[in-house]
């Protein structure tokens, strides 16, 4: 395994060639905001919240970009923050997020991100799409109004539980999480009812039925994802 040397925010660092910028940054206590990324799940770089600037000329998602020799990486400046905010705004604008009645209120990664990035108003016009709520499963529900399409649920279901019940159908703002061949979740034969997807969902999109607002998702359990993959 080769070792690469580079700088992050002006500090000289080194890392293994198979490591991503995000991994090395976190090892050294450098904070980079993320949304779709979750340790233990295969990174897919879908949300772009974790972008960093490389060599002063390009932006790349740090969760899937491997470190290289001589890279000059900047994790935070006003331009990066503006991009991150815009990305976040687009995520909000694409669905209907009404925090006050949401099950994840106060315990939501999307909400936390907007606080962290200081997103205090919207410049992008809200789409107000018509989204379904599927309550056909005995224990769990999905409210597409709150889904950010991070695909964590898809990944945990396919790679960890091995059921591959969930998938994404459609493109762009028509994309939706589906269960089996777009049946109601309750009819999905492959679903084992393990609840892993509910635990990894960063927002209130996936929830346990009958839980009050702010009900904790057991995020501290998520270490098992890493352990199970032998990381």
């Amino acid at each position: 395994m080769k070792i690469k040397t580079f700088t992050i925010d002006g500090v000289e660092l080194s890392g293994r060639e198979d490591q991503t910028i995000l991994e090395v940054a976190r090892e050294h206590g450098i904070k980079i905001p993320t949304l779709c990324h979750l340790e233990g799940l295969t990174p897919i770089g879908s949300c772009r919240i974790c972008i960093v600037e490389i060599d002063g000329k390009r932006f790349a998602p740090s969760c899937i970009t491997k470190v290289e020799d001589g890279m000059k990486i900047v994790t935070n400046n006003s331009e990066i923050t503006e991009y991150r905010k815009t990305i976040l705004e687009m995520i909000f604008a694409e669905r209907n997020h009404i925090c006050s009645i949401c099950i994840a209120n106060g315990n939501c990664e999307l909400q936390n991100l907007s606080i962290e990035l200081g997103m205090d108003h919207f410049e992008i016009k809200n789409q107000y799409p018509r989204c379904e709520v599927d309550l056909s499963h005995e224990k769990y529900g999905i409210d597409h109004n709150r889904c950010v399409l991070c695909a964590r649920c898809v990944r945990v279901c396919a790679k960890i539980e091995g059921a591959h019940t969930k998938d994404i159908s459609g493109r762009g703002h028509n994309a939706r999480i589906i269960t089996d061949f777009a049946r109601g979740w309750g009819e999905a034969e492959t679903c084992t009812g393990c609840g892993k997807c509910v635990q990894v969902c960063p927002t209130g999109a996936l929830f346990e039925k009958g839980k009050p607002v702010g009900a904790r998702k057991k995020r501290d359990f998520l270490n098992y994802l890493k352990i199970m993959r032998g990381q």
Binding site: S100, I101, E132, V133, G141
Partner: peptide, 14 residues
């Protein structure tokens, strides 16, 4: 309309 019935109390309280 379209919301889970379990959400009604907290929605209505608004």
């Amino acid at each position: 309309e379209g919301r889970p019935f379990t959400e009604m109390p907290r929605l209505m309280a608004r």
